[in-house]
Amino acid sequence: MPNLSNSNEVNAEGDIFNETDQIRDKCLQDLKQWLSEVSLNARTEDKYLLPFVRGCKFNLSKIQRKITNYYIMKRDRPEWFSNRNPLLPNLQDLIKLGVFVPLKKYHDNKMVIVIRTAAHDPKRHTWDDLSKAGMMILDVACMENEVAQTNGVIAIFDMFGMGFSHYRTLTPTLIKNIVFAWQNYHVRPKQLEFINSPIYINVALNIFKSFMTEKMKGRVKVHFGGVEKAHTIVDKEILPFEYGGNEGSFESLGNFWFEKLLEYKDWFRDDERYKAS
């Protein structure tokens, strides 16, 4: 992981959700007991359960629902969760292009991720390719940084270049699946910020919002204007060069994440077997 600053680790008496050793251990014990009785074929190591536990604020029924949805999604979306090999040309191109990049530094103790929705050529890459690459990066980023579990993520969607060739393949079914993933992944999406927004963005966003919970709808914010709008969302200095910041280019960030995913190549192969039966 890059040298992330302002990190917020959860201590033994963590102050994010009043987390204590006793509360955490009891919740994990109850969760593992439940997992032993259902057919989700889920990972049961603490490091993989804690993101769900913290994301649901130790509410066991919410944790169970979210884990169930997550492992059903892994079963039902093979286009996203099978053959997750970063060396595949279609994935390697997107990762190196920097279409989905967690930044090097946090803002307000939250991980910041920039998603460049139209940086790819829709004739070469599909939305499923982008989703697959993005979730691979998100998996690794969350494993290596507790702050994504505890304080959550600020997602900046750069809409620059979005045209008909991009929109025409965004079917309602695909949008529904993407929103389902946002709401059931093991990370806390705290802000969904759209920059370089076209004037007709609300037409597309209304479809997305139709599948969102009320809580998630309240986290969506649209910004009209150029990349300088990103400076109103997070500290300018932590942004890539292309956005007027100081923390590397999208190319360098893309290359970093490609090398990082290569380190997890065996993990991705093994992870495919964990899904609902």
Results as ranks from 00 to 15, higher is better:
236 K>F: 03
222 V>T: 08
260 K>C: 03
227 V>K: 03
238 I>A: 04
222 V>R: 02
231 H>C: 02
244 G>M: 06
221 K>I: 00
230 A>N: 07
266 D>C: 04
255 N>K: 04
224 F>N: 07
206 N>C: 13
228 E>G: 02
205 L>V: 15
239 L>E: 06
260 K>T: 05
222 V>I: 10
240 P>N: 10
215 K>Y: 10
267 W>D: 06
226 G>E: 03
259 E>N: 05
271 D>E: 15
266 D>V: 09
268 F>N: 03
208 F>K: 10
220 V>L: 12
265 K>N: 11
251 E>G: 09
255 N>V: 03
214 E>Y: 09
206 N>Q: 14
260 K>W: 01
269 R>M: 10
217 K>C: 13
246 N>D: 15
254 G>T: 03
237 E>I: 06
257 W>S: 06
260 K>E: 07
258 F>E: 00
207 I>V: 14
262 L>W: 01
242 E>F: 06
236 K>I: 06
256 F>G: 06
203 V>G: 12
220 V>C: 14
210 S>D: 13
245 G>E: 13
203 V>Q: 11
206 N>F: 15
250 F>M: 12
216 M>W: 10
230 A>P: 07
211 F>E: 07
212 M>P: 08
225 G>T: 02
264 Y>P: 07
240 P>R: 02
229 K>I: 00
268 F>E: 08
222 V>P: 05
231 H>Y: 08
231 H>G: 08
234 V>W: 02
252 S>N: 12
207 I>F: 10
262 L>S: 00
209 K>S: 10
225 G>A: 11
241 F>I: 14
253 L>W: 04
229 K>V: 00
263 E>T: 07
253 L>F: 05
238 I>F: 07
245 G>L: 09
212 M>T: 13
218 G>N: 14
241 F>D: 13
248 G>R: 06
229 K>E: 02
232 T>A: 09
214 E>R: 14
208 F>G: 11
212 M>W: 15
221 K>P: 06
217 K>Y: 09
267 W>P: 02
236 K>H: 07
248 G>D: 08
258 F>A: 00
249 S>H: 10
232 T>Q: 12
255 N>H: 04
264 Y>K: 04
218 G>E: 05
209 K>Y: 08
260 K>H: 04
243 Y>L: 01
270 D>A: 12
259 E>R: 00
261 L>I: 02
270 D>Y: 05
229 K>P: 01
215 K>C: 10
271 D>K: 11
265 K>Y: 04
213 T>F: 05
223 H>I: 04
204 A>Q: 11
238 I>Q: 15
263 E>Q: 04
239 L>C: 04
238 I>V: 09
270 D>R: 12
210 S>Y: 13
261 L>F: 03
259 E>I: 00
240 P>M: 13
228 E>K: 04
259 E>H: 01
207 I>D: 07
255 N>R: 08
251 E>P: 06
261 L>H: 00
236 K>W: 04
210 S>Q: 13
257 W>M: 06
234 V>L: 02
264 Y>Q: 02
248 G>A: 11
249 S>W: 10
247 E>T: 11
208 F>R: 11
214 E>N: 15
265 K>A: 12
252 S>H: 09
237 E>F: 08
246 N>V: 12
216 M>S: 12
224 F>E: 01
239 L>P: 01
246 N>S: 15
256 F>V: 05
222 V>N: 08
236 K>V: 01
203 V>R: 14
229 K>L: 01
233 I>H: 01
266 D>T: 11
260 K>L: 06
217 K>P: 07
246 N>Y: 10
230 A>L: 05
260 K>G: 03
